Amino acid sequence: MEERKQVPVYEDCLDYTPTARSVSLARRRTARLVTEWGRPELAGDAALLVSELTTNALLHGCLRDRLFRVHLMLNATALRIEVTDPRGESTPRPRTPADDEQFGRGLLLVGALADRWGIEPRTVGKTVYAELSIRPGAGHAARDAPGADVGHSAPR
């Protein structure tokens, strides 16, 4: 009987300081890692999700001198992105901003890009997560096909 190979699982976890620079650092790290992990078709969406989730953590979930965490996990079926911050009482909610509002669209983008997303309370703080499903043999072309369950702009 032939032994089945285990599908590799990749994981990365890094804490960031609550500064604007950390958003771009986390975004670039995510794109690089997801590409290195063999899923370049997910890198753009993953980087945008990290950017939106870390921006929300920075603006609404961080406390001075308290780090926030970005945790990436890739397995055979999904890429999961988690952003954990120290403020559990500040729960993000999608809203519809006015046309002239500069902010307020981040979770709408997360909802449009991610196959699943949500919030998990922690003893201290919260984790906001987003998941991108991995469809066998599919990249952006299959995700953007008519009838796909997630719609978004052209591949980056």
Rank of each mutant, 00 (worst) to 15 (best):
M1A: 15
E2S: 14
E3T: 12
Q6H: 03
P8S: 00
Y10F: 15
Y10Q: 11
Y10A: 09
L14E: 15
P18R: 09
T19H: 12
T19Y: 10
A20E: 14
R21I: 01
S22A: 15
S24Q: 12
S24E: 11
R29Y: 10
R32H: 15
R32K: 15
L33Q: 07
R39S: 13
A43N: 13
G44M: 05
D45S: 15
L48R: 07
L48G: 00
L48S: 05
L49I: 06
E52C: 03
T54G: 00
T55D: 08
N56D: 09
N56G: 02
A57M: 08
L58A: 04
C62T: 14
L67E: 11
F68S: 04
H71M: 01
L72C: 01
N75K: 05
A78M: 11
E82C: 13
V83G: 05
P86T: 08
R87A: 12
T91N: 02
P92G: 03
P92H: 05
R95G: 08
P97W: 11
D100K: 10
E101F: 03
Q102Y: 10
Q102K: 09
F103D: 09
G104C: 10
R105W: 01
L108K: 07
V110T: 06
V110N: 05
V110C: 09
R116T: 05
G118M: 01
I119K: 00
I119N: 09
P121Y: 03
R122V: 01
R122N: 05
V124A: 13
G125S: 13
K126T: 07
T127Q: 06
V128N: 05
Y129I: 03
E131W: 00
E131Q: 13
L132R: 06
S133W: 01
S133A: 13
I134Y: 00
I134E: 04
R135T: 12
P136G: 01
A138Y: 03
R143D: 14
R143Y: 13
D144H: 14
H152M: 06
S153H: 15
S153Q: 12
A154D: 11
P155N: 08
